[in-house]
Nucleic acid binder design. Structure first.
Lengths: 225, 225
DNA sequence: CCATTATTCTACGGAATTATGGAATATCAA
DNA sequence: TTGATATTCCATAATTCCGTAGAATAATGG
């Protein structure tokens, strides 16, 4: 029947609204950043390195698909994920790419090798380590992302300020640095820098969205410990 | 740093391979059908009503993205989902569309109203009903989909054969008809037909992929009870 | 009210995707 | 080997999507 076809077309078209919205690398990057917390167009532009107008246009598309919401703050506008399900979608897509594409692992491994950073901890290894050893957890993301959610007890020391504030870090404890997630390079570079300065330091690959998804506690607010 | 940018671009490009593959209504329809079990190009063509070459091309793209796998059987080729995660992706996209778009609900409700089929049961309601009442569960999908997975104890009576085999159904018990899922029209039409012939009948909206995702038991093989 | 800041709107050329149909390939049955 | 069946390959035109930049809008501070 023809009405059946029209119905199915309409339904799959609606589902495709979601998938089309995430079918572009830049929009995936924006979602990834928004998983860390709300942000303005400008800050997303700066974090992603894409042209301002592109950021705005892609955010527009995410908004049209209802994946993100806008709210004005003065002349600026704060974009935020509609809800945690949006972040889950991003994480699932990322997981499938990891699972299905050997390229994904190859790219990552090559990059980590270049930076002598193959040694990473995951969340379960970290928790074991916290119990046995007196490590200090270091959050190297920008302060507003730390405020939006961080590992309880982690110290905030944004990457940009790292070299100026090395004195704040203990030399007698192992430092565990994390940033936005497994493909964020901030913690990677932080580890490089800290190693050069003689700190004992490892990278934690997971990030806040992963802990939230696992039901682990996430602290909010505050600027540092 | 430039190497960082190249790394991020490569990573997001890999993730986008997944999302681009599902960013088209026809491919979503194919995935939806493949969630019911393996199928040939021809059977998918017939079930979806799209041109044969289109079916093949879209399956090609799903294969390139590793979402589906092919295996020859004689001159034909059997396509199947790579694993359950692919089906989960489809279900999540569908769930987000339901959650975010009022259109999705409006379209569905209008269609159900047209067919006087607003009365549906969900899985939990069904289980309660099975305990209290002696209902008969009717699977109206094609036999090969029934064989690939069905509600334990459900009777297979494909929609195409329904009018010829009405005698097989009991008139003293309520019939609960299901098909591929909430947006499949087979059970809907089956309910219409059965009502016309004086059966007591309701539609079950969920389908096998939903039960699998909920961890409910799913029986395989066999052609009927 | 004017300048500034932050962002969106609009338009357009170019790139990527899609639909379509003819030709080609591969398997099977006789 | 031939014909039938099932599917893919290829080429082309139509469509959609993307990046870019100038103009427009909207809020804020003087």
């Amino acid at each position: 029947m023809n009405a059946d076809r029209a119905f199915k077309d309409a339904i799959y078209e609606q589902i495709a609204r979601v998938s089309r919205a995430v079918a572009h690398p830049r929009r995936l990057e924006l979602l990834d950043l928004l998983c860390q917390g709300p942000a303005t167009v400008e800050s997303l532009t700066q974090k992603s390195g894409m042209p301002l107008r592109s950021t705005s246009q892609h955010l527009q598309q995410l908004k049209d698909a209802h994946l993100v919401q806008v709210e004005p703050r003065g002349a600026a506008r704060i974009y935020r994920l509609t809800d945690a399900a949006t972040c889950d979608l991003f994480r699932q897509l990322r997981g499938l790419a990891e699972r299905y594409y050997a390229d994904m692992q190859a790219i990552t491994e090559a990059f980590l090798r270049e930076h002598d950073a193959l040694e990473t901890v995951d969340t379960t290894a970290l928790q074991a380590r916290i119990d046995h050893e007196n490590v200090v957890l270091l959050d190297v993301r920008p302060v507003e992302e730390y405020a939006a959610g961080h590992w309880p007890g982690a110290v905030s020391l944004p990457f940009d300020a790292l070299t100026n504030r090395l004195a704040e870090l203990p030399r007698d404890r192992t430092v565990v640095a994390y940033c936005r997630g497994p493909y964020c390079v901030l913690a990677l570079h932080a580890v490089e820098i800290l190693k050069e300065h003689g700190f004992r330091v490892v990278r934690l690959a997971d990030g806040v969205p992963d802990w939230r998804a696992q039901g682990l506690p996430v602290a909010e607010g505050g600027n540092s410990t």
